[in-house]
């Protein structure tokens, strides 16, 4: 008891969560996933392995996917965080990533899905970013192999991945 209280050092952090400014008080050791779920009460980000293996906790930081279970909340300071709740549009309609996953029947139990969707969104963001101002040297749509490689950090125990990859491929065809 006594010892623990001595250590407990609180930090005030502010960042953008799904386009809204938020601030909160966190322990130094708090990981972003727990802050998102327990303090900010957005439960779409899923706790799976808590070891960086499964990807269920994937969120975007400044547009790129990270494991929120291995990310210190204090390092979210000043950053833009997007969770699955932030993908859905204001009017409640689905983002194209969510739409394609549904259309392809790429969701079974759904536990991996929010992380999967964020990871796919991250790939789209990165693709768009590297093509911005690339002129003629624009990258074509990613191959199935590249999609698989990108989704390596997202485990799914149900679907066998094929439909998830199909859905992702379709997104890039649409993008053009």
């Amino acid at each position: 008891m006594k010892k623990k209280q001595k250590i407990a050092q609180r930090h005030k952090i502010s960042f953008k969560l799904n386009s809204k400014d938020v601030s909160c008080d966190v322990k130094a050791s708090a990981v972003l996933m727990d802050v998102i779920r327990d303090v900010l009460e957005l439960k779409g980000t899923k706790p799976g392995c808590r070891e960086g293996e499964c990807g269920a906790c994937t969120v975007l930081i400044n547009g790129s996917p990270i494991n929120s279970c291995l990310f210190l909340a204090i390092n979210a300071e000043g950053k833009k965080i997007t969770t699955i709740e932030g993908l859905t549009k204001e009017d409640g309609s689905l983002d194209i990533v969510q739409h394609e996953l549904v259309q392809h029947g790429a969701v079974q139990c759904g536990f991996c899905t929010s992380g999967m969707a964020m990871s796919i969104k991250g790939l789209m963001n990165q693709h768009e970013k590297s093509n911005r101002g690339a002129g003629k040297n624009k990258k074509g749509q990613p191959s199935r192999e590249e999609i698989k490689k990108h989704l390596e950090g997202n485990l799914c125990r149900c679907t066998g991945y094929v439909k998830i990859i199909d859905a992702t491929e379709k997104l890039f065809v649409k993008e053009k």
């Binding site: 996917p65 291995l70 990871s119």
Partner: peptide
């Protein structure tokens, strides 16, 4: 190395 999520950090 690891996965895209981990490579990011």
């Amino acid at each position: 190395l690891a996965s895209s999520q981990i490579r990011e950090v």
